[in-house]
Amino acid sequence: MSISKAEKSYIQTGLLSAPPRRQDGRSLLDFRSIALETGVVPLANGSARLLIADGTEILAATKLQVQDGPLPQLTCTVTCSPAAYPHLSPAALDDVQADLTALLNGTLSRHRPDNLTILPGKKAWALHLDIIVLADAGNVCDALFMAARAALWDTRVPRTRGVEYKARKDSGFDMQTAPPDFELADYWDDGEVLGGRDTWPVSITLNIESSVHYLDAILQEEASTPLRLLLMYSFPGPILQGMRTIGSGDLSLPQIKALLADGEKYALELMQALNAKLSEEDVRRNQKARDRFEQRY
């Protein structure tokens, strides 16, 4: 998005004035309201839809597929709807998609949930995370990671058990091998949650405008800010899982150190809020749905 010099300067002056003024009346560290719903894609193993203030909209879904061989890596794919970026040419849109995919893959693919093995060394669930950006009204990175985290949190791994056909005891054969095949333990059961589902990182984007930084920029603000610092944190720890600078501005090392500490604080708050919402979603979809079903007459 390109904006005029006058608008750029207006936004920058607003951010730097005391008290800071932003277009929608938020303070520098306020997020817009975020709506999140899990379990929106019936055919996926886990899914989530995230909406930031009726603007940025993201749909994330995970799919598990049986694969031969040892435990494969998690693969993430980000697709941007052309409707979200009407001003971009198809080639430029491909580049945006590739960049977001590389960012998400680089951060998430190192995680190996511990319960994706079906038959050790032989068969495993390959976990695919596909995300669609339906609309972009700023801060798409933070939204991506939140949606990814929600979808992975929501993912259920089907329960399986090994199957083997043994010769009768008295036949003389000794069958002590591992089971060669598997079956689903229960077709109707959703399964168990992914291992380590609270260790997925959240991303926090610090938009840096000379001496101040602010969170959750809208498109106009993104266009007028020279530098963004992306931080991916996971808790407990905290552990930094990724860091990027984007833009033409520069920083000094002491500034980066201060921003890292600040970012950690914001990331923790975001993570706690997200966890609270996700647990609430779990209750809504299980406990409350069951209660409603019982009281239907």
């Binding site: 190192r110 905290p238 552990i239 930094l240 860091m243 520069d250 920083l251 980066i256 890292l260």
Partner: peptide, 26 residues
């Protein structure tokens, strides 16, 4: 970095690090 000006132009980090380790790396 641009050592002549003491400014950082880019930080690119992947994998898992504790914040104090990141600072030491920097």
């Amino acid at each position: 970095t641009m050592p002549a000006l003491g400014l950082v132009t880019s930080v690119w980090q992947n994998g898992q690090m504790r914040p104090e380790q990141v600072l030491k790396c920097l």
